[in-house]
Design a protein around this nucleic acid. Structure first.
Length: 480
RNA sequence: GGUGGUGUAGCCAAGUGGUAAGGCAGGAGCCUGCAAAGCUCUCAUCCGGGAGUUCGAAUCCCCCCACCACCUCCA
């Protein structure tokens, strides 16, 4: 079965066939860099990273993701903090890169920036103006949506419907607009604001035009997949279509993909509700791959609810996977091996059905089961039993699928937030005392020491032969 | 008001005509001086409600109920 994707534009699943055989052009709407990325960004970029990796099994993929580095919020934030806009932007681009690296999101092939694409944007706006679609008004330039018959098609809205139902929600305040749903292509500069010269005077671009300009410059008039968060479907992507297609006459993208939102404890995540979580706050508590597991556990178009319980469950699942992976060290002699074709086929069948990662993860856990069981038996003092060759093939399969889903096992950067290397001799001292007590059959004292360590977050594991391992209650691996 | 979506065990979540995947939590047993960790087994006669089509429906049709998102910057 070929890959089927749900296309927001047609509102149905369609078989995916690239415009150019063997190559896929993918454009993902990127971040506005004025603050740290939050959990919603994490979901978005993990999801599209998964898509990109999966597509890369069959195609050569070019991923372009824009960076919005000029915008009202950036200007305001820079003013508040009394820093240059460029410094603010640089800081949060670096933070973005850091967060994404920890989540094991592969970098895009290119990251065009709005401020570096001004000439392309101006060229588009001029063409729109020449065709009578855009109009200059009061130093601004607006897109007249009534001039584009298909306006509303992507989001399934009609101009009349939006007007009728808008009930005061559509901004009435702008005296320069001819029609309430018209949107700004170019904004006249206010004093002290960053500005560029243009045929309409000094100003800066509106938000939507940058993506139209960048897609065209980086990938061409028509691309395979344009992706982003659900909220971008309207108005952002609708406006992009209106801008680009009015100029090129070509479909901007053959597939429009949108990912669902993240809720926190059942509520929409928003700053006003004070339930806003940045990626770095979350990664201080949970393993990045547990976050990735949490995200991929649900279908990408469904909303997901971030709760403590859900994250604990995701952490457990990730730890199972990790334990299974570590079993590889026991199989070094028989690795690499060949993956199990019927399992790969099941994985692909799930993914080909509009990227059903929930099933893909179930396949992973199934593979993990015998491996982690073997690993645990060995770690608890047993010996390696079972069919090594079969285990090796299982491991190889797990490795292939997990890697395609973007799980990373080995990079130390991905471990929980690094803490100071601390002095653990006090733990070892207590363990030695306990060993002594046990030797003396003084179990009351031995149990007291176990309790004392337990109260301080240390769990003890007695192995056969008198060896005692310890681990932090929140860690996944034991230390001798 | 418009548009789209969702409702499957305590929780997360697959399954879209053939008789309920998987995970978390829970329960029992094994192991242990006691534990921990682990291992084994177990855990929805039923899929928001009602009516219908069918040999057969969580899956298709109709009606109803509930919840959510978008329609404004937003991933």
């Amino acid at each position: 079965m070929p890959l089927h994707l749900y296309n927001s534009y047609t509102r149905c699943k369609q078989p995916f066939v690239p415009l150019v055989a063997g190559a896929v052009s993918l454009y993902v709407c990127g971040v506005t860099v004025y603050d740290y990325c939050h959990l919603g960004h994490a979901r978005t970029y993990v999801v599209w990273d998964m898509v990109r990796r999966y597509l890369a099994r069959r195609y050569s993929v070019t991923l372009v993701q824009n960076i919005t580095d000029i915008d009202d919020k950036i200007i305001r934030r820079a003013e508040e903090r009394q820093v240059a806009m460029s410094a603010l932007v640089a800081e949060f681009i670096a933070a973005y890169d850091e967060d994404m690296a920890r989540l094991n999101v592969l970098p895009a092939d290119r990251y065009p920036r709005a401020t570096e694409s001004i000439p392309q944007m101006i060229a588009l706006i001029r063409t729109l103006e020449e065709r009578g679609i855009a109009y200059a008004s009061g130093g601004d330039v607006y897109y007249g949506v009534q001039a584009f018959p298909r306006y509303g098609q992507l989001s399934g809205r009609s101009l009349s419907g939006m007007q009728a139902g808008a009930s005061g929600r559509v901004e009435e305040g702008d005296p320069f607009k001819r029609y309430p749903l018209d949107f700004a292509l170019w904004k006249a500069a206010k004093p002290h604001e960053p500005a560029w010269d243009s045929p309409w005077g000094r100003g800066r671009p509106g938000w939507h035009i940058e993506c139209s300009a960048m897609v065209r410059a980086e990938l061409g008039d028509s691309i395979d997949i344009h992706a982003g968060g659900m909220d971008l479907q309207f108005p952002h992507h609708e406006n992009e279509i209106a801008q680009s297609e009015a100029v090129t006459g070509q479909p901007l993208a053959q597939f429009w993909l949108h990912n669902g939102f993240v809720n926190i404890d059942g509520e929409k995540m928003s700053k006003s509700l004070h339930n806003f979580r940045t990626i770095r706050e979350i990664l201080a508590v949970f393993h990045p791959m547990a976050v990735r597991w949490f995200i991929l556990q649900a279908h990408y178009r469904q909303p997901i609810d971030f709760t403590e319980a859900a994250m604990q469950a995701a952490t457990k699942s990730w730890e199972s996977l990790w334990d299974a992976w570590r079993c590889g060290v026991l199989l070094a002699e028989v690795l690499p091996s060949s993956p199990l074709p019927e399992v790969i086929a099941r994985f692909e069948a799930a993914m080909d059905d509009d990227l059903n990662t929930a099933v893909a993860l179930a396949v992973l856990l199934e593979l993990a089961k015998p491996l982690r069981s073997t690993w645990h038996r060995v770690q608890h003092g047993g010996t390696l039993t079972g069919d090594r060759a079969q285990l090796a093939r299982t491991w190889q399969t797990l490795h292939e699928i997990a890697t395609d889903l973007g799980f990373c096992f080995s990079d130390p950067e991905l471990k929980p937030a690094a803490t100071e290397p601390e002095d653990t001799t006090w733990i070892e001292t207590l363990i030695a005392h306990r060993r002594q007590a046990k030797g003396d059959r003084n179990y009351a004292e031995a149990d007291r020491i176990r309790q004392e360590l337990g109260a301080r977050g240390i769990t003890l594991i007695d192995q056969p032969g008198g060896v005692t391992l310890w681990r932090r209650s929140d860690a996944t691996s034991a230390t001798k």
